[in-house]
């Protein structure tokens, strides 16, 4: 199996399960489809010489964020989306049109700029963690620390938001 093949398979799976995620009407299934999609993305990350990001992707996204989603879904016991009589048809049609236009524009710009702008490169050595870590803790140290404060704020904020209001 060449890396190229692996990439194609992984990317294909990611796209496929992303579609499943969007199409499926049950939120829990959507989450699971997204887990698979993200897992496949992690594989592509490994192929793009970013094993650390791949691991973080699995640990944080698949292992924490999406579990959180599942958790909330189960907690709220969200029902399946029921297909109502046409849900704001104008909005749906406009949205669909806009999405298609956007996709076309994206494709066009990809053709115009995307592939040509990247510098051609030789084989990348298999990603080593140390340089990334060194970069993270030197040049981006301040951002890293700021991030920790952001996470703390998010922790406190979500706690306050989700707390049941005490009955008077």
């Amino acid at each position: 199996m060449t890396p190229r093949l692996v990439f194609d398979v992984a990317a294909g799976l990611a796209i496929l399960f992303a579609c499943v995620m969007v199409v499926h009407r049950h939120p829990v299934k959507s989450v699971l489809a997204l887990v698979v999609s993200f897992f496949a993305l992690a594989v592509t990350y490994v192929l793009l010489a970013a094993p650390l990001i791949a691991a973080v992707q699995v640990i944080v996204y698949a292992g924490a964020i999406l579990v959180l989603f599942l958790f909330v879904l189960m907690l709220l016991n969200v029902p399946e989306e029921v297909r109502q009589t046409p849900d704001r048809p104008i909005h749906q049609a406009l949205s669909a049109g806009a999405i298609v236009a956007f996709a076309a524009a994206l494709l066009a710009s990809l053709r115009a700029y995307g592939a040509t702008r990247a510098a051609p490169s030789a084989e990348l050595p298999p990603g080593d963690l140390a340089p990334v870590a060194r970069l993270l803790f030197s040049d981006h140290f301040l951002s890293f620390e700021a991030l920790s404060i952001l996470l703390l704020a998010a922790l406190v904020g979500s706690f306050v938001l989700a707390r049941r209001e005490e009955s008077p």
């Binding site: 060449t2 890396p3 190229r4 990439f7 194609d8 990317a11 990611a14 796209i15 992303a18 579609c19 995620m21 969007v22 999609s37 993305l41 592509t44 192929l47 793009l48 010489a49 749906q92 949205s95 669909a96 806009a98 999405i99 956007f102 996709a103 994206l106 494709l107 990809l110 995307g114 592939a115 990247a118 051609p120 490169s121 084989e123 990348l124």
Partner: peptide, 28 residues
């Protein structure tokens, strides 16, 4: 070309596809 012989164009294509799918989900 990028790492492991994967063309950057393919990566961007996959990325774009995922983005549009996400966009559709967010809007619809």
């Amino acid at each position: 070309m990028t790492a492991n012989g994967i063309p950057i164009g393919d990566v961007l294509l996959a990325s774009g596809a995922l983005f549009v799918i996400g966009l559709a989900g967010a809007l619809l």
